[in-house]
Amino acid sequence: MLLLNKDQITSWLNKLIPAYQVFAPVKEGDYFCFQQIRSGEQAVLNYTNSRIPPKEILFPRSEKLFCYRCETGGVQLTEQVDESKKVVVGVRPCDAKSFLLLDKVFNGDQYVDPYYLTRRNNTVLVGLGCNQPAATCFCTSLSGGPFSAEGLDLLFVDIGDQYLVEVVTERGKELLSGMELPVAGQEAQEAARAVKESAVCSTLVDLGGLKYRLDVNFDDPIWALLAEKCLGCAACTYTCPTCHCFDIVDEAAGKEGCRIRNWDACMFPLFTLHGSGHNPRPTGKERFRQRIMHKFKYFVDNYGTIACVGCGRCILSCPVNLDIRQVIEQISQAGGDQQ
């Protein structure tokens, strides 16, 4: 464990910027978002979390798969895989964990997604522990934690004027080369321990019985009840660090065009609409159920883990105050005796 003075952050980032695309939280209006910074001063590390997760650095909301030019003799395709080296600074542990979940989908057994995976392999994640988890945070209910280093290369713990730096991987260690940081002494380690102890996620969500319920409650009236409130705006999916659905479209003008993928969401009726006009998920009930089922049942069936990291963004972004923690509780309790 090393020590990094907060006043060294700017110069450290400036040192990284020529060698990497450096992404960090920056203030945009009332919110924070991850952006590529041109100067270390732009990074704001005393933030709660970004409105849109850093997922978008590896899986942008809109990205070109390839571009083409249509000539009389044929069509020239140009692949658009981004091979640049990146560092993301200030990643919260919940978001770091989300990359491990996204890996399961994009780095599949049969097919690998080269766009995501190339970026993933070229990206170093520098985490920032959460001294004061927000009221909407519930990572500890999902085997995460405000100081979990899972999925990170470095983890910074804010102990006042300094960060205690936990070196998690070799890649993380390389980022600090030439810094000659002092090893954290007992005092700093004590301070870090105190910070970690005082960081408490105020909500604990009981997920113990949820999967058992979801295995059997597909036709439960609870779905219609829960979906009644939902507007189907999909803000929850756009701010979710584990949602990964997308749509592929062509955008073109004149002879040139690109095939592009854009984030898509299971909350939209068009998501499943067939060419024939048939829609297997015709109402909000089926779509709401799909979102919950995918995260808390299907993903578990496929990969053995829940596709939620407890970041609380969907709670913050929901225009009708649908709170995933309450939804989980309601589902778990509905018909709970039948277990």
Binding site: V105, F106, G108, Q110, Y111, D113, H244, C245, F246, D247, I248, R261, D264, C266, F271, T272, L273, H274, G275, P280, M293, H294, K297, Y298, D301, N302
Partner: peptide
């Protein structure tokens, strides 16, 4: 079965039914 699909390779999520 027929489903709306985008990617065809198990990434985009459109054709997911259950697991």
């Amino acid at each position: 079965l027929e489903r709306r699909m985008s990617c065809g390779i198990g990434k985009c999520g459109h054709c997911k039914i259950s697991d």
